[in-house]
Nucleic acid binder design. Structure first.
Length: 366
DNA sequence: AATACGTACAACCGCCCTCAG
DNA sequence: TCTGAGGGCGGTTGTACGTAT
């Protein structure tokens, strides 16, 4: 059952706003505010517009301090990093960019930024062709494969491979972000583009993406993965924009981790160190523990969220193999449905890992 | 000059969530 | 507890404008 329309569609004006309509709306809101009721607003002003249309016009164009166009490189980087991390949550992304609206960012991403990155990719491919002896050649191959399945935004309706997910449980949004992530990873390998901010893709994620792209017939969402002998450094794309917990477990070989959790916010920075054994137990990552800036690590492993409610967790069983389980839905523990993002990385060897856990839906949680 | 094609972005649609009654 | 109105949001469409042929 669809819901009743919010206004009489036959008697409201649609299409572009005239300067007179803008002036009416702006003048009224400047003087009286919205009154907390957008639906009633157009009648009060004498506008033949839907209340929702008034709201959109005000929020996106008429309210003060709105910036249009002219996105900076820094803003590009923030948008891209956040898109990789949390997906198309434009309002959250917009909250990180003062003066920008979700609609503006969404349009900018769909029409320009995505293509801009693809353009860089082409440039990088030419350069990278001269460096085929890269030690991480598998990643490069995966990125090239990812390029071949890149969606053309303007013709996405024609693809229709699956409206929601691949056979491995990845949503299209998550798959797109993985593809983008891998492209950016290969950009990082190019010395000419070495100063870019993009994080490298974790081997779990890379493997998952390859599996998603190559194994179309498989319905198995549990994969057995070898532990990669050469860990890859990965930094959180969000490390500089706050609301984040960083964990640096060490001494994994002895199954004892020294964890450092750092919470950043606009006003405070707190560091907590915990020493424990074993695997990072996702079931212990409760909101209350996050509030205490303290994550219980009971053994070795980790949890990821790639955004949009897609979760992935890896358990390293004995140091040589890993089982990786993919969830396509939100992470639920103890009847608490919450939303976390996280990533693992290793630094110089197996005994040092970084893990970033971040609230993607409530920056104020920490 | 005319037409086709591509791009940018304003605006709409409809679903989901929240909350008051 | 239930229901429905309003608000918020992401996806999508429509259209003006620029560029290529």
């Amino acid at each position: 059952m669809g819901r009743a329309p919010c206004c009489d569609k036959a008697n409201v004006k649609k299409g572009p706003w005239s300067p007179e309509e803008d002036a009416k709306l702006k003048s009224y809101i400047d003087q009286y505010g919205t009154g907390g009721n957008w639906i009633a607003l157009p009648q009060k002003i004498g506008l033949k517009r839907c209340g929702k249309s008034c709201r959109l016009r005000w929020l996106n164009y008429l309210r003060p301090n709105i910036k249009h166009g002219g996105f900076s490189e820094e803003e590009d980087n923030i948008i891209c990093s956040l898109y990789i991390s949390i997906g198309s949550r434009w309002s959250i992304i917009a909250a990180q960019l003062p003066g920008r609206t979700d609609n503006d960012i969404k349009n900018y991403w769909n029409t320009r930024l995505k293509k801009k990155l693809l353009g860089r990719r082409k440039q990088q491919q030419q350069l990278h062709h001269q460096h085929q002896q890269s030690p991480d050649h598998q990643g490069s191959q995966a990125a090239a494969a990812a390029t071949t399945v890149e969606h053309d935004h303007h013709h996405h309706q024609d693809h229709q491979q699956s409206p929601t997910s691949t056979s491995n449980g990845l949503s299209n949004s998550a798959l797109e972000r993985l593809q983008l992530h891998m492209k950016l990873q290969t950009l990082n390998q190019n010395p000419l583009l070495h100063n870019m901010l993009w994080p490298k893709l974790h081997p779990f994620q890379e493997k998952l993406l390859l599996q998603a792209m190559n194994d179309e017939n498989s319905n198995n969402n549990i994969m057995q993965l070898p532990l990669l002998p050469q860990p890859i450094m990965m930094e959180s794309p969000l490390s500089n924009i706050g609301k984040e917990i960083m964990i640096n477990p060490t001494n994994i070989a002895s199954e004892t981790m020294a964890m450092t959790a750092t919470t950043s916010s606009n006003t405070t920075t707190t560091t907590t160190t915990t020493t424990t054994n074993g695997i990072l137990d996702h079931s212990n990552c409760s909101p209350s523990m996050m509030n205490n800036n303290n994550i219980n690590v009971s053994s070795y492993g980790g949890a990821f969220q790639l955004g949009g409610g897609d979760f992935m967790m890896g358990n390293l069983d004995n140091g040589t193999t890993s089982s990786l389980v993919w969830w396509s839905n939100e992470f639920e523990t103890n009847d608490v449905n919450y939303d976390r993002s996280g990533s693992f990385s290793s630094s110089s060897n197996d005994s040092s890992w970084d893990c970033a856990l971040r609230s993607s839906d409530d920056a104020g949680l920490f």
